[in-house]
Amino acid sequence: MCDSTNATPRDAAESAPRPVEGEAVDPISLLPVDEIRITTLVDNAFDALLTSDQRATRTGFGPADTPAGQFETGHTSVGLMAEHGFSALVTVRRGERETRLLFDAGLSPTAMVSNADRLEIDLTTIHGVVLSHGHFDHAGGLAGLAGRLGRNKMPMVLHPEVWTRRRLLAPDGGYEMPTLSRRALTGEGFDVIERRQPSLLLNGSVLITGEIDRTTDFEHGMPAQHQAWTGAEWRHDPLVIDDQALVVHLRGQGLVVLTGCGHAGVVNILRHAQRLTSVDRVHAVIGGLHLSGPAFEPVIAPTVAALTELAPQLIAPGHCTGWRAQHTLAAALPDAWMPSSSGTTYRLIST
């Protein structure tokens, strides 16, 4: 449960990254790649006025081909869909060979596939699916993906606790979250691969962290309102133990880390990735950091202090990061921070 007190500069200093004693029990030999492209298929925001630069290609309004009778031509232009969810297409290149993974699928059955269509991305060309965790705003688009793939077998890597029943309490009673069904996924053609431990995908060039070590003293996880069903009763579920991240080693640059919600805490995630791979340098951090809302606002200051010390060249927080954290990160890391938006492609190239 998160402490509701305000973080102080001293708290931030005491919470700065520090080495974890010892080496990983099973160190990962993560092969460097020459290029990585991460396309945000679904995020909480879409901004058609963002401009592209050498690091990111933005998507604006599309052609005026959507039927709308109130216009003289009978058509209008639309942008991409934004919703409270996250999905990203990850493309890695080693030499001349490119491979693709889908990381999460967004909230609704339609947003991810609709945005992929508008971006002219053929989802049948992906080589596998990774789920960051079992929350429904990262898995709802699997229904739309299954419709595109048909009965073709598609490997899906996930943590075995994604099937956990969960609920959120609130003064009005709250609600039980939709729970993933293993039977339904396998029935739709997904080849479900459950892993608690780290996994190497795409011939050793992509690392899925598995369960993440919790080593910071400020990333406490979800508040008491987040609960899981044990089979006999509802209990506080602070850890969301199925939370995992995707890690790529960009040759000559360092680690590129993609999170879904970052429930383990982004500093915990980055330290875990460094320890697993023995790569100290963090080049880029992209995805949700779950720093939104009163329960997480005390975590913002020490998190930003830790990220400032790690000095990534790119940080593009999205989804559940929250506006207070976004403003703080933008002020602390103005050269690295970039606003996230559905339809953005981050292109990172080795040196």
Rank of each mutant, 00 (worst) to 15 (best):
residue 92 V to Y: 03
residue 66 T to K: 08
residue 81 M to W: 06
residue 278 S to W: 06
residue 37 R to V: 05
residue 224 A to Y: 15
residue 119 L to M: 11
residue 103 F to I: 03
residue 5 T to K: 10
residue 1 M to N: 11
residue 80 L to N: 01
residue 26 D to Q: 14
residue 45 A to K: 13
residue 294 P to V: 01
residue 200 L to Y: 01
residue 311 A to Y: 00
residue 342 S to E: 03
residue 320 C to R: 14
residue 244 Q to R: 15
residue 10 R to C: 11
residue 330 A to K: 07
residue 323 W to S: 14
residue 97 R to P: 01
residue 213 D to F: 04
residue 219 E to V: 11
residue 345 T to V: 07
residue 9 P to L: 10
residue 295 A to Q: 12
residue 350 S to G: 14
residue 320 C to A: 14
residue 279 V to P: 11
residue 47 D to N: 14
residue 183 R to S: 10
residue 339 P to T: 05
residue 2 C to N: 14
residue 302 P to N: 08
residue 43 D to G: 15
residue 159 H to T: 05
residue 101 L to H: 07
residue 322 G to E: 02
residue 276 L to E: 08
residue 168 L to E: 14
residue 196 R to M: 13
residue 236 H to L: 13
residue 4 S to M: 11
residue 330 A to V: 00
residue 129 V to Q: 09
residue 268 N to L: 07
residue 53 D to L: 12
residue 350 S to V: 06
residue 144 G to P: 03
residue 141 G to N: 04
residue 125 T to A: 13
residue 147 G to V: 01
residue 104 D to I: 03
residue 330 A to R: 05
residue 308 T to I: 00
residue 185 L to F: 02
residue 229 W to M: 09
residue 82 A to G: 09
residue 184 A to T: 15
residue 112 M to N: 01
residue 140 G to A: 05
residue 216 T to L: 08
residue 338 M to H: 11
residue 146 A to E: 00
